[in-house]
Amino acid sequence: MNKIKAVDKIVFNVISKAVIGFISLVCLIPFIMVISGSISEESEILRNGYSLLPRGFSLDAYQFIVQNPRSILNAYGVTIFVTFTAIVMALFLISMTAYVLYRKDFKYRNTFSFIFYFTTIFNGGLLPTYIMMVSYLHLKDNILALILPNLINVFFLLVMRSFISGTVPESIIESAKIDGANDFYIYWKIILPLIKVGLITIGLFEAVGYWNNWVNAMLYINDKRLYPLQYVLYQLLQSTQAYAQSMADTGGSGVQLPSETFKLSMTIVTTGPIILAYPFLQRYFVQGVTIGAVKG
């Protein structure tokens, strides 16, 4: 009996390590190309394209960090502040709402779920949103413009609801009600600790979403001091595509294009920290233990 168990585990591990290893490698290689490219010589990259190993060696692409420390630091500050604030606000709102929608004894939960879900199907488009943000809420060049849109992501809401329903046994709520707790107390003191893993997961998704977002900056922010990292990168990447259009214009286009290597180094700089978030958080993804709460 023992021999059979060991063999199946070994076979499984070999297969799974091979498959996952292959997928991970395929995911890793382009990223290595970006890193190599960013420390390569610009002329080599233009001539021969990207490659796994750096072509020539040059830190020119990273010079801008030395030359403009202020704007990069500023962008980091903005991005970090926005991401953190948004995560806290979003997790609170999403978990609280998801809890309400999960409660089977809340008769209108399906109606409200539909009310929330409906917003993902029909969208008024850019025009009314822009008018609302700029003319009515007066959020132009305001850091809130980077936080408030997309704060309540209905997908995350529904996933969280499903997570709560999969993790929290109903008996806990019943026993708490018998003890006289009100709904908010149950949510705050009992539910939240139980769904830590869910909070971390959605928190990670929120972090990634906010970190990567440049659209809100493009629409609402003109003040350079409020530019988040991804928007700075986005503008750089746009320059190439825009440059060619100057053919049709009679003004000339002046500034030299950001080099290929510069685009790559900017990618590393803007992406770097958030990639570390996932490995950092992995230790919190522990096997959930909720059974004890009820039995006790």
Partner: peptide, 16 residues
């Protein structure tokens, strides 16, 4: 390690 590697492509902009 593998999980972290698999996460990387998500951050690459489609332009690149």
């Amino acid at each position: 390690l593998c999980q972290s590697f698999m996460f990387l492509p998500f951050f690459m902009s489609w332009v690149i």
